[in-house]
Design a protein around this nucleic acid. Structure first.
Length: 280
DNA sequence: GGCGTAACGGTTGAT
DNA sequence: TTATCAACCGTTACG
């Protein structure tokens, strides 16, 4: 099954950008454009806003023809208006009827997870998920060799915005890794003083349980019953969180590195799994 | 033509 | 177990 999926994707990947980009639609990710500016589409295909299907004759870089200077300026295009820009929003969400359908289009690459998509350059990506490590490596490596971002973008079939983002991040942090996805902001569950005390207790007695810490906090008068850290899941979950944050971080980082090492193996939801080793 | 960036739809994972 | 929410993702298109 997976092999079959890979085959489909490899087929897409091996097609030239010209071939793969002849038909294209906005298929989920990407910037929705105001209806008015969509009139830049070739007149012959300008109908049917209901399906929001765009038949475009694209060069490998897609929008060269779209944004080309052919034809008169579109008076409906906010860009071409002289009126204050405040009157017409520069950005509009697509109307409900124009929602980007997720299936049923040639360049929608179907996988068991239904996630693979093809960008305008003919590259495959999974919306919402980071690019595979080897692609990120390659981007940085090519940049190191003095290759310009636009060339990297075309060659790896990764959007220029993404190349720019990854290189920027690499310059700033020295890391090619994507940021941590998901999770919510850790809530302030205890005052700094209490946190400090918890830390002390744990340092003095590493084997101490959360409920013991809670009792000790009460006993030592650090806090009373109304202010002692508690949690929704359990009375001591807040204390556990503090402990995790203070003492569990190093382990997490190690774990992260480890994950990075064998990241290619754990590809259940990664584009790696779909792409196989095509990228190498 | 190249680049930076805003906005999009989407995914993730802690709470 | 489920829902919520805020972080992130890569893409597209504008300037």
């Amino acid at each position: 099954m997976l092999q079959r999926v890979n085959k489909i994707l490899l087929g897409v990947l091996s097609a030239s950008p010209k071939e793969t980009a002849i038909l294209w639609k906005q298929n989920g990710a990407g910037r929705a454009r105001p209806l008015s500016s969509r009139s830049r589409r070739p007149a012959s295909v300008s109908g049917n806003a209901g399906t929001d299907m765009r038949l475009l004759f694209l060069t490998p870089l897609g929008r060269r023809l779209m944004s080309g200077a052919s034809g008169p300026p579109d008076a409906n295009n906010p860009k071409n208006r002289s009126s204050p820009s405040g009157t017409v929003p520069r950005m509009m969400r697509p109307a409900p009827g124009q929602n980007y359908p997720r299936t049923g289009f040639p360049l929608e690459v179907s996988t068991p997870l239904g996630q693979g998509r093809v960008n305008q350059l003919g590259g495959v990506f999974i919306n919402g998920r980071p690019l595979p490590n080897h692609i990120r490596h390659k981007i940085v490596e090519m940049a190191h060799h003095g290759i310009r971002p636009c060339v990297i973008s075309r060659q790896l079939r990764v959007s220029h915005g993404c190349v720019s983002k990854i290189l920027c991040r690499y310059q700033e942090t020295g890391s090619i890794r994507p940021g941590a996805i998901g999770g919510s902001k850790p809530r302030q569950v205890a005052t700094p003083d209490v946190e400090k005390r918890i830390e002390e207790y744990k340092r003095e007695n590493p084997g101490m349980f959360s409920w013991e810490i809670r009792d000790k906090l009460l006993k030592d008068g650090v806090c009373d019953r109304s202010t002692v850290p508690s949690g929704e899941a359990s009375p001591v979950s807040s204390i556990s969180r503090v402990l995790r944050a203070r003492f569990g971080k190093k382990d997490d980082e190690d774990e992260c590195d480890k994950k990075d090492e064998d990241g290619e193996k754990k590809t259940k939801h990664s584009i790696d799994g779909i792409l196989g080793d095509k990228g190498n």
